[in-house]
Design a protein around this nucleic acid. Structure first.
Lengths: 226, 226
DNA sequence: AATCATTGCTTTGTATACGAAAAAGAGATT
DNA sequence: AATCTCTTTTTCGTATACAAAGCAATGATT
């Protein structure tokens, strides 16, 4: 594994997990010594994070971790809706029905055995996403979706879902999967619309409530989500 | 201007214009000496082109200009439809009606003075795209659209539009712009759908005809369009 | 006392040197 | 004659050295 890949993976994980909070300045020498690589591969990692939109060049001299505010979340979900509704339609047309029928069954059961923790649930969603990508067979769309998902990790972390929302989310995913399995493109797309609407509403209300809101005020907006 | 920016701009222009044909290997020392920069900024330029999807690492040792085949064009237009229909809807909701009314008028006139050449027409389309981005107010969506447009330059070059198609395209753009000006989101989205359907059909028939087809068979597919 | 200028220090951008790995070519052996 | 192996050469990945550009701090001048 290349040093630039290790640096990128390390910084990505730290940004997504919140260890590197929005606004943190990422100086090259500081981060390169911390991560045990030289400046050259670290610069490549920062460049990749910048095209991802996870860091921004606040000034020509200083690179900071980008912030995620309410406006960003709304914008992200607008793009997400465009991409995932399209993906759901294409999967309904081209996907393997058996695969999505099985996924629908898994989402039904996940509601019952929810006590396993949400890591297992997020893992199931990751499987669903992977099967969606495989069914769509469109590298451009898949790449755009991958970028959206990169940002979504931080959004999910900002507003930890409550149990009721997780159960509803599982039911919504089950419907999407079964619609794809039934080759019902309209239903798959509209169920995706419903799911994203509910997910966004849940996140925004969670952010408005005092418990999970981000402490720092929005200072630096995400940009350049290529 | 940084050396890495110059290298990126130069390579981008050469790939989009076809000077660097698909399959051309881009060795680091060769390109760095040719462009008059050292390997470090050239590597950054190649990295950016790779995330754009304009070059691919054919093997861990050799980077080549990516190819554009019929399958890529279909995939690109699937993503384009998702993004541009959404953008048209949002622009109809949020855009400045006067701006798009003026654009609609410009598209009407462009049909009459088409003799100016298609450079002027493509410039008008670029203005339309810029106004669309401004109206949408969504950096994520705008970034995704910018990436699509980067690829679209090569597709347009592969299949040079015929005059009749350009006239029809102007009329389709006029309808989209006026629908946005009239705040008719459904019409704007559906007119975009129609436009992209016609544009794709025109390109695919042009590629099937013997004149403008790409000489080399598809060997290396585009990927990683982040 | 406040402001402007100059100097030095920090940080980025670029060039180059070094090491490792893979590919190509030549030679020997079967 | 073909193939396998060893060697050589090329190319990439990384580290480091160098230069240029900002920013800050300090001192002098008004």
């Amino acid at each position: 594994m290349r040093a630039s890949d290790r640096a990128y993976a390390a910084l990505l994980e730290e940004i997504q997990s919140g260890v590197l909070a929005p606004g943190t300045v990422l100086a090259e020498v500081e981060q390169s010594t911390r991560l045990g690589v030289s400046r050259t591969p670290l610069r490549e990692a920062l460049s990749r994070l910048a095209t991802d939109g996870l860091v921004v060049q606040q000034s020509p001299r200083v690179t900071v971790v980008s912030d995620v505010d309410t406006s960003d979340i709304r914008e992200l979900f607008e793009l997400r809706r465009a991409l995932e509704e399209t993906a759901a339609r294409l999967a309904a047309q081209r996907g393997d029905a058996a695969v999505f029928a099985e996924l629908a069954r898994a989402f039904s059961q996940s509601t019952l055995t929810r006590g396993d923790g949400l890591d297992a649930y997020y893992s199931l969603i990751a499987q669903f996403d992977a099967q969606l990508d495989a069914a769509v067979v469109n590298d451009y769309l898949t790449s755009a979706l991958r970028n959206v998902r990169t940002h979504l990790v931080r959004v999910r972390r900002l507003a930890r879902d409550n149990p009721e929302r997780l159960a509803a989310s599982a039911a919504e995913h089950r419907l999407i999967a079964s619609a794809i399995a039934a080759r019902d493109a309209d239903l798959a797309a509209h169920a995706t619309h419903v799911h994203l609407h509910n997910a966004l509403s849940s996140i925004l209300t969670a952010l408005d409530s005092p418990s999970g809101g981000s402490p720092g005020a929005a200072s630096q907006s995400i940009q350049g989500a290529a």
